[in-house]
Amino acid sequence: MSEAANLYGVVAKFGSPETILAAAQQTKDAGYENIEAYTPFYIEGLDDNLGHAPTRLGWVVLMMGITGLLTGFFIQYWSNAVFYPLNIGGKPLNSWPNFIVITFECTVLFSAFTAGLFMLGRNGLPRPYHPIFNTPGFEDATRDKFFLCIESKDENFELEKVKSFLSGLNPEDVAEVDY
């Protein structure tokens, strides 16, 4: 039995996406807030059932996309029209239609890397250690088992109550997990 201060949370293991969806809903309805589910693949609606707010990733990507667009255009405008004016075939120095392709590519480059790296960063990756990995049988969380954790930092967290609550959700297993 671990000391309460060292306890990360109580984790229940489920055998199917349907059961964990129902369990997540019931856990949220019971008033627990610091809860998280761990699944082998994306389950539609699970983030809703857990009460997770929608991600703001799209807005960040939009901002960076606009930054990329302006960067792409102005590097061409500045270098070919201002810093080192180049007369090519008598075209205007700021012949913007010719600059569209590179402007577009820079927009895509900035937005795509923002989407990818911001997602990893906000998920806290790379992160070699996470207390949830101490859950017995957690190897199956990337295979065919579904885990639901009520974390000890939750305001309503009382070890025995949480354990009996999770046991009541018809899980395959319930375990205490230490840091």
Binding site: E36, Y38, H52, A115, M119, L125, R127
Partner: peptide
């Protein structure tokens, strides 16, 4: 794997990033 643990929040961001990509 960078320490991927498959949490629901991580999947939520992941799917959004994947769709945007």
């Amino acid at each position: 794997s960078l320490g991927w643990n498959g949490s629901a929040k991580a999947w939520q961001r992941y799917m959004r990033a994947y769709l945007i990509l």
